[in-house]
Deep mutational scan, measured.
Amino acid sequence: ENVVSAPMPGKVLRVLVRVGDRVRVGQGLLVLEAMKMENEIPSPRDGVVKRILVKEGEIVDTGQPLIELG
């Protein structure tokens, strides 16, 4: 699984990683606000951040690609 998608609609509050960062399974990639709750979106696997597909403040839909892992 190379693309991390939004599990719910919401607003991207914070991106916690940068392109080139090594991440571990379960590590927070970004914080999504949904229904006034902050939800940290975890990495599904170990890898390297290849691309960040959203910006802070952006509104996303369920299933929208957020981050690509390499």
Rank of each mutant, 00 (worst) to 15 (best):
G10A: 15
L66D: 00
S5D: 07
P42M: 14
M35W: 08
N39E: 05
A34F: 12
R51C: 01
G28P: 11
R22N: 15
E40F: 13
L29T: 13
D21N: 02
V15I: 11
V48Y: 06
R24W: 03
V15M: 10
P44I: 14
L13Q: 09
D21T: 02
G26L: 15
L30P: 00
G63V: 14
A6I: 05
L13E: 15
K36T: 12
M37D: 05
V23A: 05
V49W: 00
M37E: 08
P42L: 09
R51L: 14
M37Y: 12
N39W: 15
K36E: 08
R18Q: 11
R18G: 12
S5H: 09
L16C: 01
I59R: 02
V4Y: 12
V23H: 09
D21M: 01
D21S: 02
I41A: 05
V12A: 07
R24Q: 13
L13P: 09
L69M: 07
V25H: 14
P7T: 06
M35T: 10
P7R: 03
D46Y: 02
L29D: 00
K11I: 12
K11F: 11
E40D: 09
K55Q: 12
E58Q: 06
E33F: 09
M37A: 06
E68L: 02
L32I: 08
R14K: 03
R24E: 06
G28Q: 08
A34N: 12
L30V: 09
E56Q: 05
L30R: 00
G57W: 06
P42T: 11
M37H: 12
E58C: 01
V19M: 06
L13H: 12
I41K: 04
G28V: 10
M35V: 04
L53A: 14
P42C: 01
L66P: 00
E56I: 03
V17Q: 07
V12P: 01
L13C: 01
V15H: 05
L30N: 02
A6V: 06
S43P: 05
Q27W: 02
M8Q: 03
A6L: 11
D61R: 04
V3P: 11
R45E: 14
V48D: 15
G47A: 14
V3K: 01
G26D: 12
L66C: 01
G28L: 13
Q64C: 01
S5N: 13
V4G: 14
L30I: 12
